[in-house]
Design a protein around this nucleic acid. Structure first.
Lengths: 182, 182
DNA sequence: CCCTCGTTGTTGACGCGTCAAGTTAGAGGG
DNA sequence: CCCTCTAACTTGACGCGTCAACAACGAGGG
């Protein structure tokens, strides 16, 4: 893998070479003030981008095959299944699954149509809505769980030592904080 | 965040509780032979899933806003820009970007329509096709690069120390190997 | 010489996520 | 009492990725 971010396109060195001819009217390359990534940073970023692209795809494909549901759908049902009353307010559920409210709403709609969860307006003030796991929904999570853990182990956890697992926790916290800051 | 994978849904402990009533005809819960994730593994996995969901979304949104292209499109153009003749065979480019050939083909089609790259059949034997960066395409990568590095630094690299960066490289290798094994 | 196979790449239908625009409901200001 | 704000959702259009089918092309077997 390789994604640049190295500097002026061309592996570290200058110039495009090759025969493309004169450029269009660009402001003459990058603004010069950029701090490019050094070797170690670059390698770490390339590793991350490969993970970002491959892992969700692999996980999704496998979940779809084995349990007929998406990785994200599993997350939603799973979070609900761990809640006291199998219930959570939509916006909280969205935060818990790192998703936008819009995305969650779409997913909830589909899950509702499949009879795996129900949405109920909360009577109090404001416009709260709760997502509730149905009996069928609970059955599906329980059935899907073993396959899901197996996949997570196979693709990620079992290949790592304690040091990497610890690093992952710190990295997760750092990334989340950085993104929230925006 | 929290995604289960902990055990029988319900936080670590047994039983669903809550009032859902009797389940349908499931084979009586998980097959029992499952090795659930322990606390540290669970936390690492939750961190990873949060990254998998949030980072690409954040990066994509920002690239789209600032440079009018996708994170993945940038990767493709960038890889090409680092190649000697700004050229690479489709299947190699797919491997380099961790994408399926089909995905790459669609993306190449769009980029071609925008005049950023061209595809040329290689005359020799077989059915090889090369993707080639155009002058305009090169201009766009160069213009987009600084913003891209800035985002990568802000969301990921600058928040991490040498230990985390090193761990990331090892984790990337491990995950890639595990997925390829499938 | 033909038939089948393995690569390599493309295409179309379909599903999911995003973005922008609503909708519903209470809270605060004048 | 009305008007506007904000919070909490929902909805629809649109773009991208996946999957499955297909097309192009050489190689080997019988």
């Amino acid at each position: 893998m390789d994604t640049s971010t190295t500097g002026a396109p061309g592996p570290g060195g200058p110039d495009p070479r090759g025969g493309e001819g004169a450029e269009a009217g660009e402001p003459a390359g990058p603004p010069a003030g950029t701090r490019w990534l050094d070797g170690g940073e670059l390698a770490a970023w390339l590793a991350t981008s490969a993970i970002m692209i491959s892992l969700p795809a692999a996980l999704d494909a496998r979940m779809q095959r084995e349990s007929g549901m998406t990785f994200f759908e599993y997350m939603v049902l799973s979070v609900l299944s761990e809640e006291p009353e199998h219930t959570m307010q939509m916006s909280d559920l969205a935060a818990r699954t790192s998703a936008s409210l819009s995305r969650l709403s779409h997913v909830a709609g589909r899950l509702e149509k499949r009879g795996l969860l129900a949405r109920v307006r909360v009577p109090g003030p404001g416009r709260r809505t709760n997502a509730v796991l149905t009996g069928a929904g609970y059955g599906e999570v329980v059935a899907a769980a073993p396959g899901h853990v197996a996949a997570v182990r196979e693709y990620l956890v079992d290949g790592l030592g304690p040091a990497e697992l610890a690093a992952l926790r710190r990295i997760g916290a750092s990334v989340e904080a950085a993104i929230d800051r925006t």
